[in-house]
Design a protein around this nucleic acid. Structure first.
Lengths: 127, 127
DNA sequence: GCCGAAAACGAAAATGATTGTCAAAATAGC
DNA sequence: GCTATTTTGACAATCATTTTCGTTTTCGGC
């Protein structure tokens, strides 16, 4: 893994929530790196391909990334306000998805589950 | 609701699965309509704002729409091959999402759940 | 330490979905 | 029929993301 890619991964690790490619590019430039936007995209692509980071799409269609502590299958509870994300798992959901797929004759069933909310800090700040 | 908007909604109703704005535009033009792409986007925007259609994003970031039979909260089981979608509901998932949010101090919890798979027809065709 | 191939970079151009602009056309109210 | 309002659609503009393509860096020998 190249130095640049390491830098992108580290920038992701330092962030507590999901960040877009553009965000990360801005972060890295802000801390003095001369990295190019293209490289950020390439690094994120590689990292998500190798399963080192999770990707999801915002409602506006922008891709956002996160370095996750667990490499097992899990989902996220994301704060609408600050973007902070908590890793959660739900065996019940996994089973449900599988069962629903099977019931309708679908095979190779996969699923995406994201939970959004306002975290305690952001609720407090909103007062 | 204008005639154009009706046309877009009907095109959606005739489709069995999720369709992108571009798809619908192509469909409408194919059946002789002189509708413009801009109008298709505007109609879909209006329809999704009023909750008459469901929207989700493909992995490539393209927005896809579907006219759903039920106006209650539900999820979709979508075929990766043909795009056909089945409306499903999962009380267990709703409760789980709410519980997980509460456990971590999150309020105003919402969630998105999509299940993907290969439907029986498409599996058969793949042989 | 030095050399060349291969991999990684980055700037700028290309792409593709979506949105904004604005004048023409449909429709409504009178 | 006639003006006021809304809807429409061609076209330009936006914006994230990808491609292209020379340049630079990294590395494995030597």
């Amino acid at each position: 893994m190249s130095t640049r890619r390491e830098a992108v991964k580290q920038a992701l690790n330092e962030a507590s929530g999901f960040r877009s490619a553009q965000d990360l590019y801005a972060d890295l430039r802000a801390e003095g790196s001369k990295i190019g936007l293209t490289t950020v995209y390439r690094a994120l692509q590689a990292l998500s391909d190798s399963g080192e980071v999770d990707v999801l799409r915002t409602g506006e269609g922008e891709a956002v990334y996160r370095a996750c502590a667990s490499d097992a299958h899990h989902h996220h509870l994301v704060c609408r306000g600050c973007g902070r994300a908590v890793e959660v798992e739900g065996p019940a959901v996994e089973k449900w998805a599988e069962a629903v797929g099977a019931k309708h004759g679908f095979t190779e069933v996969t699923h995406t589950v994201e939970v959004f909310g306002t975290c305690a800090d952001c609720s407090a700040r909103a007062n």
